[in-house]
Design a binder for these strands. Structure first.
Lengths: 172, 172
DNA sequence: CGCCACTTCTGCGAAATCCGCAAGCTTTGA
DNA sequence: TCAAAGCTTGCGGATTTCGCAGAAGTGGCG
């Protein structure tokens, strides 16, 4: 009774483990569909996901586990820290001279930094920071980020209000 | 055998439904602890969470459900769209003249926009965009965002590489 | 103080889910 | 042709989820 399966899907949309340039495996359509299911509801049972993507419960379980192990995906609770209460948040744009990635690595190791991305705009790096209060924020930006060798200058954007936060790409 | 409970927690850290200015309820310490557990693992069973925060399984279940219903928290799979494959991503800083919030609302309704925050920096709004490809990105920025009445100017930061993405505030 | 409405927590069974495992099949690649 | 991967089906047992009834704490009010 597995007649309505995806018509003996094979080869093309299977996971030929071709690698994208950055070393992470390219995902096939089925894994993408699984991720999409979990973007809608991170606790959705494996059987339900399997039905949606045309895979057995066990197969979904294996795939999800692998995606988690590989770090391709994480299943977590997300909130708006500002709503949750007691915190100051800001985006910091950073101009770097020299090796951008090494600076980014340092930022990554800071616990107050939640988000680090290297960009092609006028900033070399964007980093999102979550702090206890204004003093803490000031300390992180001025004492710890600006002090890094290679950081030429920074510009801060203190968050006033988070209007949207979704994880639904692929659902379009 | 629930002796090591949080010492008859009452009143102060309970959820006296005092509202923070933006209308969302202030969370008590227990809910915060629950969220923290789910930030570490969005699929962690209720019983395990209950043991960690000093509540019964059923109570945790109710709380989590309420947090989800209220929109305070969501449990989802998150990925790096760039790693996942076929997409262009950018942060766009926007200078607004006139009503900032109404512009932010319009952005919020765009499916390509994943993240919208009003800031106190030189930009009035920061918006993160996820697109199919360069053409799509260009289209969204030039035709749809820049065209909005009230948008004075924009600056784009195309993502090259996502270095960090966590949801672990409160775990410090 | 007593009563009531309301909310939250607890303590159950019952149902559903998760998890590991085994045997068989197909495709891929060396 | 053989080995490796990945999927499927099937299966119990352990765990988790779920719904519900009852207990317990709170706040309003006469």
């Amino acid at each position: 009774m597995h007649s309505e399966r995806v018509a003996s899907r094979s080869a093309d949309q299977r996971d030929s483990p071709r690698e994208s340039r950055n070393g992470s495996p390219t995902l096939d359509a089925v894994s993408l569909a699984i991720i999409q299911q979990l973007q809608e509801d991170g606790r959705r049972p494996y059987a339900a996901i399997g039905k949606a993507v045309g895979l057995s419960e066990a197969a979904v379980r294996q795939r999800v586990q692998k995606l988690l192990d590989q770090g391709v995906m994480q299943i977590v609770a997300v909130t708006d820290p500002l709503t949750v209460g007691f915190r100051r948040q800001a985006m910091v744009g950073i101009h770097v001279e020299g090796d951008v990635e090494s600076i980014a690595d340092v930022l990554t190791d800071m616990s107050e930094v939640e988000y680090v991305v290297m960009t092609a705009g006028s900033f070399d790096i964007l980093a999102e920071i979550v702090c206890e209060d204004d003093d803490h924020l000031l300390d992180v930006i001025n004492k710890r980020i600006r002090a890094l060798p290679g950081v030429r200058s920074t510009e801060s954007f203190v968050y006033m209000k988070l209007k949207k936060q979704t994880y639904m790409w692929g659902t379009r």
